[in-house]
Design a protein around this nucleic acid. Structure first.
Length: 799
RNA sequence: GCCGGUGUGAUGGAAUGGCAGACGUGACGGACUCAAAAUCCGUUGGUAGCGAUACCGUGUGGGUUCAAGUCCCACCACCGGCACCA
C-alpha cells in the first residue's frame, strides 16, 4: 500500500467524528481517565509545531488508554482573554471578540488536521459569557470569604502608552511597546490572599505525582522558611523595629540593622531623621529599578545610614546603627533585617563597603575573607557559648527571646499575594461595585455574568485606567445592597484567571446552574495526568491549585488536589538551535508539514526528534526519516505471508513490551525507534503474517493513527484500529534462545561468545575457556574472581 | 549571585553501574535508471596496521568499583528561571 496521506487523513478524521469515537462518556462503566494538556492562547500567528509537540505526548497516552479499555476524557479549549489580542484590536481597529473568534477558528482547523483525538464536544473558550460567568462567580465567592483585599503597590507604568506593565514588559526600565522610560507609580491593586493557602499548597505536594523538577520549583516558589521575629527598640523614640531572621542563633553578632528604603517607619519619624532628604533621594533611585534590576547589582551594595535613629540590642542593650538598602525588600518578612555580617554573605558585602564591625559568633571559616555560613562552636554569645550546632542554639535563643518578651519563633513564605487586576478591556470584568454607603459590594449571582460592554475604542484611559472606565453605562449602577447610586469596578482580571479552573468546566461545559454538576465532578476529578510547559509550573499551576483548594473548602469539588500527575515537555527550537520566534523567522507552521508529509509524519516526528522532556531543534531533513518509516510501514501490506519467522515473532513481542512501557515513561522517541527496528527486522525476514501486522498497526496507532486505520481496514480488521484492544505481549516469546555476551578480562573487552540465554556461570565459563583466543589470554594467569551477568557479560579478573 | 537543566560521532539523540554510539539524519560506495529523484543493499567515532588486532574515546581534573556516560568530590561551558528572601 502507498502512503496516500492526502486522501486518507481527512477520510479517517471524518469517520472518527461521525462515530463520536473520542467523545468521553459521563458515568461510563469503564474506568475513567482524564488527560489534560494546557489549552492554547489563540494568537493571530496560528499554531507552531511546539504546540503539536505539547499535545502529542498525552495524545499518545490518551489513545493508548482508550485501547486499554478506559473511558478517556482528553479535552481542548482556548485561553482567549489577553493582551496580544487587545493590542491587535487597538492596532487594526477590530473588536477583540472578532479577532478571538477568527483565531480560534484558525487554531481549531490546525488542530483537527493533525488528527488529535480531542473531545471536541467539550471545547471551552474562556471569553464566552457562559464561561466567564463562573470565573466571576469564583472570584465573588473569594470576595465573600475574605480572600480578596485592596492595597497600594508600586507598579511599572508607561506614561507614553498610559498602561501598567508587567516586569516582563518593562525590562531595563523601558516599555516593551514604545521603548520609552517606565516609571514606578503607586496604585490601588486587588489582591487574592493566596498566602493563606501557602501551607496547604506546600503540603499538597506530598499527595501528588509531579515530575521531581516540577515539585522542586513549586516548593521554591512557595518558599517556606522557619526562623524568628525579633523586636528591636529604637533608642530615640518609643517604637520597636520588628525584623524576621532565619538565624536567631547569631543575634549576638548583629552589628547593624537594614530597612527596606520604602519602610513606613521612616515616614512616621521623618522629623527625627536628620538626613531625610538623602533618604528620599535614595528611595527615588530605587523606585526606578525593577526588582529584576535590583538583583543585577549583586556585589556592589548601595545604601545609607539613617542619622537620628538607632536600634537597641534586645539582650545586650548595645546601640546599633540603622541603614537602608535596596537589598532588603518591603515585600518579604517585615521589610527589615538584623545584619550579621560575619555569617551572611550579603550583610558581609554591605559591612565591608560601609566599614561596619564584623563580629564572629560561630567558630570556623575566615571572616577576613568571607562570611562563614557553616556550623561550629558558638562564641561571643553569652549563654549560647559552647553550643555546637545551629539547631540547639536556635532553640535556646527562642526560649530566651520569649522569656524576655522580645521575640518569638515564626515562619515566612516567599510567596506573595496575587495581584489580581489589570487596566484592560479584554478580560473578565471584576464583579465588584463601589458604593458610597456600603463600600465594596460583590455582584450577586443573578447578575452574573457581568458582561463586557461593547466598546468603540480600546485605548486605555488617561492615567492608565481601563477602557471600561470611559463607558458611563457600565460604570454607573445601583448598589446591590442598598440600591443607591454606585460605581462599578472597571479593572478586569488577569489572564491567569480563566485558566485557573478550566479543567473543571470541561467536565460539564454546558451547565447553566453551576460551574459543573457535583455528580460529574465526582466522576471525573481529579485530572489523572496533566502535561504542559515548564514555564507554567509555578504561576499557572500554583494559582489553579489555590483556586481548586478554595473550591474544595467550599465543598464544590470532590478532591483537594486537581492534578494527580504532572509532566512537562521541552521546547522545539528553530533549525538554528534557538527558540522559535516570529522575528527570527525560524518558526515552523504545522500546516506546511501536513501539506508535504501528512499528519502522521508530523506527529511521529515531533515525538521522535529527541527526549520529550528536553528541547530539540527542528530539522527538515530528519522529518524525512519519519516519512520513510510511515511509508515502509504502509508497504508491509505488500509483504504478507501465512507464516511468521520465529525471529520476527520474538522481535514483535519485545516491541510490544518496549512500546507499552515507553509510552508510560514518555519515552516516545525510543518507542518509535523500537518500531523502526522491528520494521528493519521484518524487511530482513522478507515477509510478515497478517496477525502480526495487525498487532504492529495497533502499536503504531496512537502515533500515526490515519495510516494505521488504513492498514487495519486493508487487513480486514474489525471496526476502528483506534478502538481495538491494546496488544499484550507474551513474556515467553520475548526470550531469545542464544545470546552473544561480552567477555572481559580485568574489565577490558577481550572477546565475545554465544551461549544459551539461560546458561549457568559454569557453562558460560566453559564456553569462555573453549574460545582459543580467550583461553590463550588467560594462559599462565591465576583467576582471582569471576563475574557473570546473565545475558550481558562475563568478566574474569586474573593475575 | 541563587535555583533548575544540559554537555556523548559530522548531526538529532540511545544506553536498570555491565559490549558506548540503538534508532533517525547526513556522508560515502553499490544496485536500479539514458539520466536524475525516489527506492533497495552495504559502510560510516578516532589513530595505527594489508590484516586479525591494538591503543584512545561520553565537557575538565580527581576518586569509588572487577566494571563508570551512569555513583562521589572539585571545576568549566552552555541553556532556562529568578523574588539579593534575611
Amino acid at each position: 500500500m502507498k502512503h496516500d496521506f492526502r486522501n486518507i487523513e481527512t477520510k479517517w478524521q471524518e469517520k472518527w467524528e461521525n462515530a463520536k469515537l473520542f467523545e468521553a462518556v459521563d458515568f461510563s462503566e469503564k474506568p475513567k481517565y482524564y488527560t489534560l494538556v494546557e489549552f492554547p492562547y489563540p494568537s493571530g500567528h496560528g499554531m507552531h509545531v511546539g504546540h503539536i509537540k505539547a499535545y502529542s505526548g498525552l495524545e499518545v497516552v490518551s489513545r493508548k488508554r482508550r485501547m486499554q479499555g478506559y473511558n478517556v476524557m482528553f479535552p481542548i479549549g482556548f485561553d482567549a482573554f489577553g493582551l496580544p489580542t487587545e493590542n491587535s484590536a487597538v492596532k487594526f481597529g477590530v473588536h477583540p471578540r472578532v479577532l478571538t473568534d477568527e483565531n480560534i477558528e484558525k487554531f481549531t482547523g490546525q488542530l483537527k488536521r493533525v488528527g488529535f483525538s480531542f473531545d471536541w464536544s467539550r471545547v471551552v473558550d474562556t471569553t464566552e459569557e457562559d464561561y466567564y460567568r463562573w470565573t466571576q462567580w469564583i472570584f465573588r465567592k473569594m470576595f465573600d470569604n475574605g480572600l480578596v483585599f485592596r492595597d497600594k503597590t508600586l507598579v511599572n507604568y508607561c506614561p507614553h502608552c498610559k498602561v501598567v506593565l508587567s516586569n516582563e514588559d518593562s525590562q531595563g526600565g523601558k516599555c516593551d511597546i514604545c521603548h520609552n522610560d517606565v516609571v514606578q507609580k503607586s496604585k490601588d491593586v486587588w489582591y487574592l490572599r493566596i498566602t493563606q493557602y501557602a501551607d496547604k499548597l506546600l503540603q499538597g505536594l506530598d499527595k501528588v505525582d509531579y515530575l521531581p523538577m516540577v515539585r522542586q520549583q513549586q516548593e521554591n516558589w512557595i518558599g517556606k522558611s522557619t526562623g524568628a521575629f525579633v523586636n528591636f527598640k529604637l533608642k530615640e523614640v518609643e517604637e520597636t523595629l520588628r525584623i524576621y531572621t532565619t538565624r536567631p542563633d547569631t543575634l549576638f553578632g548583629v552589628t547593624f540593622m537594614v530597612m527596606a528604603p520604602e519602610h513606613p517607619l521612616l515616614d512616621t519619624y521623618a522629623d527625627k531623621v536628620e538626613n531625610m532628604a538623602e533618604v528620599l533621594a535614595y528611595r527615588e533611585e530605587c523606585a526606578k529599578k525593577t526588582e529584576f534590576e535590583r538583583t543585577q547589582l549583586v556585589k556592589d551594595k548601595t545604601g545609607l545610614q539613617i542619622k537620628g535613629l538607632s536600634a537597641v540590642h534586645p539582650i545586650t542593650g548595645k546601640e546599633i546603627p540603622i541603614f537602608i538598602s535596596d537589598y532588603v525588600m518591603m515585600g518579604y518578612g517585615t521589610g527589615a533585617i538584623m545584619a550579621v555580617p560575619a555569617h551572611d554573605g550579603r550583610d558581609y558585602d554591605f559591612a565591608k563597603k560601609f566599614g561596619i564591625d564584623i563580629i564572629p559568633v560561630i567558630e570556623g571559616g575566615d571572616i577576613e575573607k568571607e562570611a562563614y555560613t557553616g556550623d561550629g562552636n558558638m562564641i561571643n554569645s553569652d549563654f549560647l557559648n559552647g553550643l555546637t550546632d545551629k539547631k540547639s542554639s536556635i532553640a535556646r535563643m527562642l526560649v530566651e527571646l520569649e522569656k524576655l518578651g522580645v521575640g518569638e519563633g515564626g515562619v515566612q513564605f516567599k510567596m506573595k499575594d496575587w495581584a489580581f487586576n489589570r487596566q484592560r478591556y479584554w478580560g473578565e470584568p471584576i464583579p465588584i461595585v463601589h458604593c458610597p454607603t456600603c463600600g465594596m459590594v460583590g455582584v450577586p449571582d443573578e447578575e452574573l455574568p457581568l458582561r463586557l460592554p461593547p466598546v468603540e475604542n480600546f485605548q486605555p484611559g488617561e492615567g492608565g485606567e481601563s477602557p471600561l472606565a470611559k463607558i458611563d453605562s457600565f460604570v454607573n449602577c445601583k448598589c446591590p445592597k442598598c440600591g443607591g447610586d454606585a460605581k462599578r469596578e472597571t479593572d478586569t482580571m488577569p489572564q491567569w484567571a480563566g485558566s485557573s479552573w478550566y479543567f473543571l468546566r470541561y467536565i460539564d461545559p454546558k451547565n447553566t446552574e453551576a460551574l459543573a454538576s457535583p455528580e460529574k465532578l465526582n466522576y471525573w476529578m481529579p485530572v489523572d495526568w496533566y502535561n504542559g510547559g515548564m514555564e507554567h509550573v509555578t504561576r499557572h499551576m500554583i494559582y489553579s491549585r489555590f483556586w481548586h483548594k478554595f473550591l474544595y473548602d467550599l465543598g464544590i469539588v470532590p478532591c483537594d488536589e486537581p492534578y494527580s500527575k504532572r509532566t512537562a515537555q521541552g521546547l522545539i527550537l528553530g533549525a538554528n538551535g534557538v527558540k522559535m520566534s516570529k522575528s527570527l523567522g525560524n518558526v515552523v507552521d504545522p500546516n506546511d508539514v501536513v501539506d508535504s508529509y501528512g499528519a502522521d509524519v508530523l506527529r511521529t516526528y515531533v515525538l521522535f526528534m529527541g527526549d520529550y522532556e528536553q528541547a530539540a531543534p527542528w530539522s527538515d531533513s530528519s522529518v524525512k526519516g519519519c516519512k520513510r518509516f510511515i511509508e515502509r510501514f504502509a508497504a508491509l501490506t505488500d509483504m504478507l505471508s501465512d507464516t511468521v519467522s520465529p525471529e520476527v515473532e520474538a522481535a514483535l513481542h519485545r516491541t510490544i513490551k518496549k512500546v507499552t512501557d515507553d509510552i508510560e515513561a514518555m519515552k516516545f522517541n525510543t518507542a518509535i525507534a523500537a518500531m523502526m527496528a522491528l520494521l528493519n527486522e521484518i524487511h530482513a525476514a522478507g515477509s510478515i503474517d497478517k496477525e502480526s501486522l495487525k498487532i504492529l498497526a495497533k502499536l503504531l496507532c496512537p502515533f500515526a493513527p490515519h495510516i494505521c486505520e488504513e492498514v487495519w481496514a486493508e487487513l480486514g480488521g474489525e471496526g476502528f484500529c483506534s478502538a481495538a484492544e491494546w496488544p499484550i505481549y507474551d513474556e515467553a516469546k520475548t526470550k531469545v534462545a542464544a545470546v552473544e555476551i561480552a567477555v572481559q578480562i580485568c574489565g577490558k573487552l577481550r572477546g565475545k561468545i554465544t551461549i544459551p540465554a539461560e546458561a549457568t556461570e559454569e557453562e558460560a565459563f566453559a564456553a569462555v575457556m573453549a574460545d582459543e583466543n580467550l583461553s590463550a589470554l588467560l594462559n599462565g594467569k591465576q583467576i582471582v574472581k569471576k563475574i557473570y551477568v546473565k545475558g550481558r557479560l562475563f568478566n574474569i579478573v586474573a593475575k
